[in-house]
Design a protein around this nucleic acid. Sequence first.
DNA 1: CTTGAAAGATTCAAACTAGAAATATTGAGG
DNA 2: CCTCAATATTTCTAGTTTGAATCTTTCAAG
Lengths: 141, 141
Amino acid sequence: MAAPQARVTAERELCGLVNGLAHQISEHVRERATRLGLTAAQATALRELTGPMTTSELAERMSCEPSNATFVIDKLEKQQLVERRPHPTDRRARQLVLTPEGSTLRDKLLALLEQDSPLAGLSAREQDSLHNLLQRARTRR
Amino acid sequence: MAAPQARVTAERELCGLVNGLAHQISEHVRERATRLGLTAAQATALRELTGPMTTSELAERMSCEPSNATFVIDKLEKQQLVERRPHPTDRRARQLVLTPEGSTLRDKLLALLEQDSPLAGLSAREQDSLHNLLQRARTRR
DNA sequence: CTTGAAAGATTCAAACTAGAAATATTGAGG
DNA sequence: CCTCAATATTTCTAGTTTGAATCTTTCAAG
């Protein structure tokens, strides 16, 4: 049986590692993004825009507040990378859609992000394990 | 052999999960921190102050810039939770030390953080796996 | 039809963070 | 002794992120 102190230490280290890796990913994104004239947040938004979606959904995917998503989308819209369309069924909502320029830039971004990814140190099998563990940790609301 | 598209998707999902969990931890810390009159960053600093260390070392542990660590320490110092002492051997550096109040508050914080941790959904064995995977992903660079 | 609670999006102010420049110190060489 | 690059920290500014308030629309209940 582990001493309570050991459990606390393990908890702290794990938090540090998760935070550290997230930061490392964020830096990786930032570095690639600047090559394309984007900020890290803008690139993350572009990465998560896998298809038409609402502002809330994008915010959820970006793990940020909707107000911040609005701010980021404003910037992308000014660069003509994203369009705000009226939502087909809900007039409260806006549907975010990539423009052709946005779509091609997104492809370039994904190609860049794939290179030297912080996750590349793990094998496909290990990435799967990580995926499962994270998903399980995360579904516990 | 997986299609290149599948690899890109897996990469994106994994990034999202890591980010999401980091955000979840951050929110967890924030919620417990406010109970003690601290911000999330201040609580993280307190959590990582396992002993006397320099500003740079704390920044490294917090995964932030030294300038930000300075800002956070300023706040903790005003609350008499941390002291800046001259470093015993390097006069350029400062040694950060918890005051008695800081130490007791840190203990309370760790106890709070242990409750309902986002990582609690994983067994001890799974947490070990996660620890190993994250460490391997992080040691590159 | 009307009311009221709730959800989607936006605005605004306040707080936080990173990045670059500035200060002080160290250590290696000349 | 002196110089110069490198390190540790801090200051300052600009940009990002959050949280609260607001506006519009939806939906359910009366």
